[in-house]
Design a protein around this nucleic acid. Structure first.
Length: 699
DNA sequence: GTTAGGG
DNA sequence: CCCTAAC
């Protein structure tokens, strides 16, 4: 009885509830907004000041735009969090972000300009600062730019150096804590990753892409990270994560970790038992089967709890929940495209808080789940119109790329290393087929590859806001656009939030990408955009899902203009799509049928709670609704020919009793207390189906 | 929270 | 079994 009420855990407190099973009715928890911690603020300030210094050194340029500021704050916050975490907590692998590939594309246009360098530099700086990760950016796109590039690089290098120090200090700390460090060289060299045309920061997997507006959308832009590269990235990321902790709130991570560790073992993607609605959605039209993902299923974010029918029996379901978790199977979602919502709202619907979501960013999770069904990964891209693009270059930034949620089965005895490997394999398998890039403009897929960006309208500032990209495993044909960016972006702030959510880290580090910087926490909690925020109700168990829902988050990075771009989900359809698992089927045994018949004979129909108490008091998995349903089917079964019956045959004798009791109680409305004992109905047997007769006898 | 039914 | 409307 008290259970349900207790269920509203507070995630803020990171309290993990131990409820065995959740009541069906959703437990919708309200997310609590995170408050920024003082410490964080300080850290931010420090970082900010540091950044300023750097900028000044390089002859600060005044040109900072709102968007940048935004990013900065985000990153800064992120950094702070990381530091904090690393200091305060023991890091757990589980807390690592799944990682997403972060892709940033910078237009080359800036470079040539006198100011361009500076700006670029700033960008770089921001990134570095934000992530506390050295980022090397280099663009070889055009030779003419090379000189400018140098400058940029230099700037970056500086930053890197500065941060490397930080990293070192971090390392020391971590070492003290007993973390293993890889013998990575320190300094820029170690952390610099250079690629031609495409640069990915080792840690963040940031990819910079530059291209002229006139390029063909398809061929010129390359977003494919190299495998090795990926590895490296993940590696370094891991390292970072270890050192600094994941960007998520400590609490979050912590909680997640706990969940994860506790539940991960299960083989099936146990996920959440969810909200009925969610289940419904899942089972029905909303999800499609992903052809390719067999090894891992996509799970849905929703961790709804099942209802406890234990009001009277208070702990009646103990342990059941767990059972469900382990044995229930997850359905795959195919609608992931719809899922990719800016706020992830798609999936959330009314379901609210799953701790997980809260932690990681609900929206993304849910979205991820949906996507996951397909196994397609999508990414949101943030792009910005190049400011003053006199040179007609389009500047785009893809902040992150996430893979769909994966379910992985790992024995409890598995090592962390094996866990990571397993995840890596799953991810690799997912992406093994290669990625296909789709371009979305105003939610529509841009198909004509030969058209220039300007011809496609992509170069227009107005349209940039509506530009989106999709990354899908090429194996999957589903052409459907995964996500799009919403044109009318509300506030940059919102955008940031969206991004954040989408980026929310999954419990496990996929090893592929790094966590994305968190958005400003202040605003996070409330998302005006949609009600999605509410995390899906989840139990603690949720963590169980090893799944890493990854959606590819597409984030728009506000460009210089500072207008914020909001990522909007293309499809609203799965508004509520939360996944719920269907309970495992448990056919009634003859014994149970017998008990049911007996009880109904005694108590009558229409008093299922009493029946339950009388005959199934200890059968946690049999709810009174189940009993009622079973009775319904029994009556039906008794009326059909034995040839038409399926499953374990029920003795005719029992079926006869069913009919008799049914007939009897239909006449009696079953309201009167069970004065009728089995004896009473026995008489019926004689008269058999003659209802009137039975009644007469009974009376 | 229970019931009663439809799905 | 699920989901809901009605109580």
């Amino acid at each position: 009885m008290v259970f349900k009420k207790r269920l509203s855990y507070e995630f803020n407190g990171f309290h993990v509830p131990n409820v065995p099973r959740a009541p069906r009715s959703s437990r919708r928890r309200v997310l609590h907004k995170r408050t920024v911690e003082d410490g964080q603020i300080c850290a931010i300030e420090l970082l900010a000041s540091l950044a300023d210094k750097l900028l000044q050194e390089s002859e600060s340029s005044a040109s900072s735009n709102a968007s940048e500021g935004n990013d900065h704050s985000r990153f800064g916050k992120n950094v702070v969090k990381q530091e904090r975490q690393y200091e305060d907590k023991p890091l757990k692998i589980e807390s690592l972000d799944q990682g997403s590939c972060e892709l940033s594309a910078f237009g080359s246009e800036l470079i040539p300009e006198s100011n361009g360098d500076l700006k670029e530099f700033q960008n770089a700086e921001n990134h570095a600062t934000l992530e506390c990760i050295p980022v090397m950016k280099k663009s070889s796109f055009s030779d003419k730019v090379s000189s400018d590039l140098k400058t940029v690089i230099g700037g970056t290098a500086k930053i890197d150096g500065a941060f490397s120090n930080v990293g070192d200090s971090c390392d020391c700390k971590s070492e003290n804590k007993g973390f293993d460090e890889e013998g990575q060289p320190k300094g820029l060299d170690a952390r610099t990753l250079t690629m031609s045309n495409t640069y990915i920061s080792k840690d963040s997997m940031e990819i910079c892409v530059t291209f002229p507006e006139s390029i063909n959308s398809d061929r010129d832009v390359k977003l494919t990270p190299h495998r090795d590269f990926v590895r490296k990235a993940s590696f370094s990321r891991l390292r970072n994560a270890i050192k600094l902790g994941s960007r998520d709130d400590d609490d979050k991570n912590f909680t997640r970790s706990n969940k994860f560790s506790n539940r991960f073992k299960a083989s099936r993607p146990p996920t959440h038992i969810g909200d009925r609605r969610i289940r419904k959605l899942l089972t029905s039209k909303y999800w499609k089967v992903a052809p390719k993902l067999k090894d891992f299923e996509v799970s849905k974010a929703d961790r709804g709890l099942k209802p406890l029918y234990c009001k009277r029996k208070a702990f009646y379901n103990n342990g059941k929940y767990q059972y469900d978790i382990f044995y229930k199977k997850k359905k795959k979602f195919c609608d992931w495209h719809s899922a990719v919502t800016s706020d992830g709202g798609v999936s959330n619907e009314s379901v609210s808080n799953s701790p997980e979501k809260i932690m990681s960013g609900d929206k993304s999770n849910s979205a991820a789940m949906l996507h996951g069904a397909n196994g397609v990964s999508s990414s949101f891209i943030g792009q910005q119109a190049s400011h003053r693009s006199m040179d007609s270059h389009v500047k785009l930034s893809i902040e992150s790329f996430r893979i769909p949620e994966l379910f992985i089965e790992v024995p409890e005895t598995a090592t962390v290393g094996s866990l990571k490997r397993t995840i890596m394999e799953a991810v690799t398998a997912l992406l093994g087929g290669g990625l296909r890039v789709g371009v979305l403009l105003q939610g529509k897929k841009v198909r004509d590859d030969s058209r220039t960006l300007s011809q496609s309208g992509i170069s227009c500032k107005d349209n940039l806001g509506t530009l989106g990209f999709t990354l899908e495993p090429s194996a999957i044909q589903s052409p459907a656009p995964v996500c799009s960016v919403d044109p009318p972006p509300p506030l940059s702030h919102d955008a940031a939030e969206n991004v954040t959510r989408s980026l929310a880290t999954p419990p496990v580090d996929s090893g592929i990408s790094e966590a994305v910087p968190e958005p400003p926490s202040l605003t996070n909690p409330e998302n005006p955009t949609d009600g999605n925020q509410e995390p899906v109700s989840s139990d603690t168990d949720i963590l169980t899902d090893p799944g890493l829902p990854e959606s590819k988050a597409l984030v728009l990075v506000p460009a210089m203009n500072g207008e914020a771009l909001a990522v909007v989900p293309l499809n609203q359809k799965p508004k509520k799509s939360e996944l719920a698992q269907r309970r495992t089927r448990r056919p009634f045994s003859v014994t149970e049928v017998e008990a049911l018949v007996q009880a109904v004979e005694e108590v009558g129909t229409g008093r299922w709670r009493d029946v339950k108490l009388r005959a199934f008091e200890n059968a946690e998995h049999r709810t009174y609704v189940d009993l009622k349903d079973k009775w319904k089917t029994l009556v039906h079964t008794a009326r059909i020919s034995s040839q038409q019956r399926r499953g374990e045959p029920v003795p005719q004798e029992l079926l006869d009793r069913v009919l008799a009791a049914h007939a009897y109680w239909s006449q009696h409305q079953a309201k009167q207390q069970g004065k009728h004992q089995s004896g009473t109905l026995k008489l019926t047997e004689t008269s058999d189906r003659n209802e009137a007769g039975a009644i007469q006898l009974l009376m």
